[in-house]
Simulated scan of single mutants.
Amino acid sequence: MSSHKPDYDHLLRTNIERVFGERDAAKRDKVIAEIYTAEPVLLEPTDIVQGRDNISKTVDKLLEQFGPDFAFMPVGQANGHHGLAHLAWHAGPKNGPVVVTGVDVAEIVDGRIARLWVLLDPPV
Rank of each mutant, 00 (worst) to 15 (best):
K57T: 05
D60V: 12
Y8Q: 01
E34V: 01
T37C: 01
F66M: 13
S3G: 07
E64T: 12
P6L: 02
N15H: 12
L116R: 08
G92F: 13
V109P: 00
P45D: 12
V124H: 06
V109S: 12
L84I: 15
F70R: 06
A71M: 03
P74D: 07
V109N: 09
R52C: 09
P93L: 09
A26V: 13
I35S: 07
L43P: 00
N15K: 14
A106R: 07
P93T: 06
L84K: 09
P40V: 08
A25S: 14
D60A: 10
E64I: 04
M1S: 07
K61M: 09
V98L: 05
E17N: 10
R115N: 14
D69I: 11
P123F: 06
E34F: 02
R18A: 09
I108M: 12
L42Q: 01
V98Y: 01
I108E: 04
D9M: 08
H90F: 10
P45M: 10
V49Y: 02
F72C: 05
K5H: 05
D47L: 09
E107Y: 03
D104A: 06
A88D: 13
Q65M: 12
V99Q: 11
D53K: 12
T101V: 04
L42A: 11
I108K: 03
S2D: 14
R52H: 13
D29W: 01
R115Q: 15
M1K: 07
L43I: 15
V31F: 08
D47W: 10
D69G: 15
K30P: 00
A25E: 13
A114H: 05
P97S: 09
H90Y: 08
M1P: 03
K30M: 03
I55G: 02
E17L: 15
D110L: 04
I16Y: 05
V103F: 04
L43Y: 00
N79F: 03
D60N: 15
R115H: 14
R23A: 07
P93C: 03
G76L: 03
Q65T: 14
V31C: 04
T14D: 10
A33H: 08
D24V: 10
D110T: 02
E107G: 00
D47S: 12
P93W: 04
V100E: 11
E107N: 06
V103C: 15
A26W: 00
G83A: 11
R28L: 09
A114D: 15
V98Q: 07
A38N: 09
Q50S: 12
P74M: 11
P93Q: 14
K5A: 07
L43Q: 09
L116P: 03
A71I: 03
N54Y: 01
L87F: 05
V124P: 15
W117H: 15
Q65G: 02
T58R: 15
F72H: 15
K57P: 02
G96L: 14
G80W: 08
D60T: 11
I113K: 05
V103Y: 00
N15F: 14
A114C: 00
E64S: 13
E17A: 04
L119D: 07
L63P: 04
V49M: 06
G102V: 10
W117N: 11
T37F: 06
K94L: 11
T37R: 06
V75N: 05
W117F: 15
T37G: 11
K57S: 06
G67Q: 08
L42V: 01
E17G: 01
N54M: 07
P123D: 08
V99L: 02
P93F: 09
I55E: 08
L63A: 09
Y36S: 00
P97L: 10
R13P: 01
Y36K: 00
A78E: 13
